[in-house]
Simulated assay, not measured.
Amino acid sequence: MDKEMEAKVLLVDDEQDFLETLSSRLELRGLKVSAVTSGEQAVSEAKEDEYDAIVVDLSMPGIDGLETLRRIKAINPDAEIIMLTGHGSVQSGVEAMKLGAGDFLQKPVELSELMARIGEARDKRMLVLQKRSQEELRKILQAKSW
């Protein structure tokens, strides 16, 4: 069994059964999971809340995974996004990475692999937030005339 990890994750996939199963398995390992079935819902969620990792299916009706990635990155450039696909190509993987995806994994994904990637995404996000906090503190201190 994987070691429990604290992370807030958004899952985006149009396959309801897959979404429910993966959500349950991740929650059993200590993750706080929100799940939506469309790219439009994912963009809305990303506007409302911050996530340690966002796991997005590449192939969805409506706005697909690449467009979802594009829109979320426009809202939050620091978002850590992991793309999942059941039938991805090298070209779509390259495109996802160019658009800012942190990872590109094939379905069915090994849970231990996904947990590791979510952990890496969370760690990268924490470093970005730490750096941002340090920069803000530095600016505040420089603005003071002590």
Rank of each mutant, 00 (worst) to 15 (best):
M1L: 09
M1R: 10
K3P: 05
K3A: 13
E4Y: 03
M5P: 03
K8C: 08
K8T: 11
K8V: 07
V9Y: 07
V9W: 07
V12C: 07
V12F: 06
E20A: 10
T21E: 14
S23C: 09
S23K: 15
S23D: 04
S23F: 03
S24C: 06
L26F: 02
L26Y: 07
E27P: 01
R29P: 03
R29V: 11
R29N: 15
G30S: 03
G30E: 06
G30N: 05
K32Y: 13
K32H: 14
K32G: 11
V33R: 02
V33W: 02
T37S: 15
G39M: 02
E40D: 11
E40M: 04
A42I: 05
V43H: 02
V43C: 00
K47D: 10
E48P: 00
D49F: 09
D49S: 13
E50I: 11
Y51G: 04
Y51P: 02
Y51A: 09
Y51V: 06
A53M: 00
V55H: 04
S59V: 15
P61G: 12
P61F: 06
P61L: 01
I63L: 00
G65F: 12
L66C: 06
L66I: 12
E67K: 08
T68H: 07
T68Q: 08
L69M: 06
R70T: 09
I75V: 13
I75Q: 05
N76A: 10
D78S: 14
A79P: 02
I82E: 01
I82A: 00
T85C: 08
G86L: 10
G86Q: 11
G86V: 07
G88V: 05
S89H: 01
S89L: 01
S89P: 00
Q91A: 15
A96H: 02
A96V: 02
L99D: 02
G102E: 14
D103Q: 14
F104C: 08
Q106S: 15
P108F: 04
P108M: 03
V109N: 09
V109Y: 06
L111Q: 06
L111F: 07
L111G: 09
S112D: 14
E113H: 13
E113T: 14
M115G: 04
A116W: 09
A116C: 04
A116R: 14
R117E: 14
G119N: 04
R122F: 02
D123V: 03
K124V: 06
R125I: 02
M126T: 11
L127S: 02
K131L: 10
R132C: 00
S133F: 03
Q134Y: 11
E136D: 13
L137M: 10
I140K: 10
L141V: 14
Q142K: 08
K144I: 12
S145K: 13
W146Q: 11
